[in-house]
């Protein structure tokens, strides 16, 4: 059983979001980088749990990123996983990134590919679907539970207003959301072990991106809060009804 876990680096959740170069680039100065929470808390941890149950499971991590992504990949390896692959490219378009990972997946013959449900910076929610299509295998998006029985996966996924449980024979691509696993803190042994785990860099395949980011913008600032005294709740209702017209 070989599992490929897709890892992305994202700004820490408390980072100040600002842009530079005429609002065409994210201002990275002073930003702390973390493993995208969905990749870390859910997909990576679930893969590690599967390996704990069955030590013959092999876990590879993959990221599309330049050399400055390596500290984040090492952090992921400190949680678990046998080795990591870094595809040496910047990740500015979903199709580009998905195609690169699909290429690695084809070469490695993986039974299972995990992504997070989305990254918290680009919020694409697209990479898993693109990989699955390029490999022509089933895709379960927004999984909230994942179990494996031989080569059949039992997956629960979010649907509008509820959930659905399905059984699917591997190979399979799954995007993991909350519920699949619980967050873990790496321990000292894991951190030491991660230093010597193989992390190989490979050059990207020739693929053209299909989108480019023209610019970024920040949402307009709020006008400021209108405070209503706690003993005059009727006034709030009046404002919501007559001014905001939302009720």
């Amino acid at each position: 059983m070989k599992i490929l876990v897709c890892i992305s680096k994202t700004p820490d959740t408390t980072s100040k979001i600002a842009f530079k170069d005429n609002n065409t680039k994210f201002e990275e100065a002073g930003v702390q980088w973390i493993i995208n929470p969905y990749d870390e808390w859910y997909s990576l941890v679930r893969a590690i749990e599967l390996k704990e149950k069955d030590p013959s499971v092999i876990i590879h991590l993959v990221t599309v990123g330049t050399a400055d992504a390596e500290p984040v990949i090492r952090k992921a390896l400190a949680l678990g996983g046998d080795e990591a692959i870094r595809i040496n490219a910047t990740s500015d378009d979903s199709f580009y990134v998905g195609s690169q990972i699909a290429e690695i997946a084809k070469q490695g013959g993986y039974d299972l590919i995990f992504t997070g449900k989305e990254t918290i910076d680009y919020n694409g929610s697209a990479i898993g679907g693109i990989i699955a299509e390029l490999l022509d295998v089933p895709y379960v998006s927004l999984a909230t539970k994942f179990d494996l029985n031989g080569d059949v996966a039992t997956v629960t996924r979010e649907i509008d207003g509820g959930e659905e449980v399905a059984e699917i024979k591997l190979p399979l691509v799954v995007s993991c959301a909350k519920g699949v696993a619980e967050q873990r803190i790496p321990n000292m042994r894991g951190i030491m072990a991660a230093r010597t785990k193989p992390l190989k860099a490979v050059e990207p395949a020739a693929v053209d991106a299909l989108t480019t980011i023209a610019s970024y913008e920040l949402p307009p600032a709020k006008a400021g809060v209108k405070l209503i005294p706690a003993d005059n709740v009727a006034e709030l209702v009046r404002l919501l009804h007559e001014e905001a017209k939302v009720i």
């Binding site: 989108t211 980011i213 913008e217």
Partner: peptide, 8 residues
């Protein structure tokens, strides 16, 4: 934030 993305 928002991104303005050009589809090519």
């Amino acid at each position: 934030a928002f991104a303005n993305v050009n589809i090519t």
